[in-house]
Amino acid sequence: MKIQDIVEQLQWEVLAGAGRLDADAQGGYVADLLSCVMAGAQPGQLWFTLQTHLNIIAVASLTGVAGIVVTESAPVAPETIAKAEAEGVILLSSSEPTFETLVKLTQIGF
């Protein structure tokens, strides 16, 4: 599914990577421990997390996930957003907690 379609339907906020939303995402991974994400996330997945430390951008590049979705509108520092832009990482924000975010995602056929 195109990230653009998801963002529009679920009204996620685009924090970085607005120009690259026509990319596809398939499947997802949920974790806040970056060591788990490095071991478990697959390229092309959406990664859902509450962790907003700068290292999430490096880990997203490393794993090749399609994008990061920060849930519960967890505050993301400007440095993290700037790094995402610089590294070409799509960084999104959902206002709802992770569980509700995922339920809604399945409801739109993801």
């Binding site: 060591s35 994400v37 430390h53 700068l54 290292n55 880990v59």
Partner: peptide
Amino acid sequence: RPSGGVLGVLGIWPP
């Protein structure tokens, strides 16, 4: 350590 340890939580050495 997986919990509380910097490498467990942040994966790589942070700046």
